[in-house]
Design a protein around this nucleic acid. Structure first.
Lengths: 130, 130
DNA sequence: AAATATATACGAAGCATTTCGTAAATGCAA
DNA sequence: TTGCATTTACGAAATGCTTCGTATATATTT
């Protein structure tokens, strides 16, 4: 039985989704190896997490071969969007621009990226010049 | 005994910090009343959370009167910064500008806010025109 | 002072998350 | 086919978070 709404991924599940989004369909071993570049985590731990993600509907898998091949079942952009909204709400009282200011102030961004953002802003101002 | 590093607030603790940041020093009842405008939550639940926040070093209190008065012990900006970094890392692979694009694209921002952001960007470009 | 209202203290249940140990299955190699 | 290496399945411990019930303390009112 599948859940009506796919639940929000936990932090560990997000780590795995990152790998699946970037690498495409992967085995448990592949995912676990990548995760271990950042932090130590047991193989069966990753396996269990991915099995849970399957149950939750966050991933699908091809179990025809010996090694099951997992794939993300949620889109990166929409997942980012949903979690971003919650983040902005609980930490920035819903003010996206406040978050943007913080993000730009404390991380480096190349001038190309900055230009990209600027043109996005100009585009938005044209669209709704309220 | 105090923790060496103040731990990251949980989601519930962030709700309370929001209130303390906005309202300043407050009693449990004041916080609980405000929280109940958004969702139902029992008085002793809020009390317990605030006591835990005291233990964790997220809040301090004045217990001289009958009603204890709690106060945020972590700064809003630095807390935002720390959590934002983690958020960007786990959901946007460390790319702040990606997050900014998503944030601007999916939330409304007034043209005043957009102008503010634009001038921030221009300022940044001047400072490090790499 | 007794009764009442309101506050804090504390323990613990319920649940989710993370982690891993152990067993069973599977494929490959000798 | 027998054994070895690898994989999956499953259970469950350990921890953390949220919630609230009950007991106790404190103040106010009558």
């Amino acid at each position: 039985m599948e859940p009506l709404h796919t639940p929000s991924p936990t932090e560990s599940e997000l780590e795995i989704l990152q790998v699946l989004w970037q690498q495409g369909p992967s085995t448990v071993r592949q995912v676990n190896d990548l995760l271990n570049r950042r932090r130590e985590i047991g193989y069966t731990t990753t396996l269990k997490l991915m099995q849970i993600m399957l149950e939750k509907g966050l991933a699908t898998r091809d179990a025809s071969g010996k090694m099951h091949i997992y794939q993300a079942a949620v889109e990166e952009a929409s997942t980012q969007q949903r979690l971003l909204k919650r983040f902005v709400d609980t930490l920035f009282r819903g003010s996206a621009s406040q978050l943007v200011m913080q993000a730009l102030g404390n991380h480096e961004a190349s001038s190309e990226e900055l230009d990209e953002i600027k043109s996005l802003i100009e585009q938005m101002e044209k669209q709704q010049p309220k």
